[in-house]
Write a protein that binds this DNA or RNA. Structure first.
Lengths: 161, 161
DNA sequence: GCGTTTGGTTTCATCACGCAACCAAATCGA
DNA sequence: TCGATTTGGTTGCGTGATGAAACCAAACGC
């Protein structure tokens, strides 16, 4: 049977994962955020098989996360560049990196750190905050049906804790 | 060939994806955050095959994202509950949800919204901020080797844009 | 004009995913 | 107390996805 897709679920998490949840896909986006643009560079930096890379890049272009720009005079030399939609995945990648830093490598063993170029300071971790920028604890958060909710969601209002 | 694992890459994003990047895994965590605890409930709410769910739950328990608690008097009735490590994935799920809200459903069509119980207000989107809580634009962010960097990383210092 | 680089595609073997059937222990209902 | 049902799985089988290596054509560099 074909792998089940999540595209029909009425849930933004599922929809997002349907597009970027494939094996390798987010690592390709991470490479793109670090400046990689060409097929051969993605391939050698990630150690991904060429046929898989080819499929993933195609899918990322179809979904307008990358665009394939023709460079080179008259033919086939291409650059894959992030679209605004793709650049906006920085938050997702950041959340994943920070989680790995905290729970796998541990404080003081981060392979990569992010710095604010203007001040030179390290960028503090992402937090869920209120309008004033103050952190909100999970037990104070409540999930509830939004304007695009379907019937199954309507019964589920839950505290996130 | 077996699917390649990312566990040996010196990168927090790759390590995180190695653990939670499997098809279905983050949706199971999302369900857990919404309060689901039992096998049959995960199965019916997600529409996932039982053998796959079984494997994913096992892996999540091995990786200490869920714990399997024995409920019921004298035997086999179990609850899968999030550990602190698992609860900390809320940021990742939130980033994914918000990306999907922005780029797939669009403003005003969110299936689910998150509210601050104390104030009743909607929770604003995650942002990468400096120490004062002010947003930092991507072009002001720079990735550079951290304390746990290996040699391949040492040459790569990049602006994220 | 010729070798090399780039950006793939093809082939084949292996593994993961999905469905349905099956199952044993625990619990529920009468 | 005994049979039915619920819970939490496992097993078998078919199909699609993944990975390695070989192959290839068009562009580019000299």
């Amino acid at each position: 049977m074909a792998r089940k897709r999540f595209a029909d679920m009425n849930c933004s998490v599922a929809q997002s994962l349907d597009i970027i949840g494939d094996w390798w896909t987010l690592l390709i986006v991470r490479e793109a955020l670090l400046g990689t643009q060409q097929f051969a560079d993605f391939q050698s930096r990630l150690g991904i098989a060429k046929n898989i890379l080819s499929k993933r890049l195609q899918r990322l272009v179809e979904n307008e996360i990358l665009m394939r720009v023709d460079i080179g005079r008259s033919g086939s030399r291409f650059a894959y560049r992030l679209t605004p939609r793709g650049k906006d995945l920085l938050t997702v990648i950041t959340a994943l990196r920070e989680w790995g830093d905290r729970w796998i490598f541990g404080e003081g063993n981060e392979p990569v750190v992010i710095r604010d170029r203007r001040t030179g300071g390290l960028v503090p971790p992402l937090r869920i905050t209120d309008g004033e920028g103050l952190a909100i604890e999970a037990r104070h958060l409540r999930a509830e049906p939004g304007p695009g909710a379907t019937r199954e969601i309507l019964e589920r209002t839950r505290t996130l804790d």
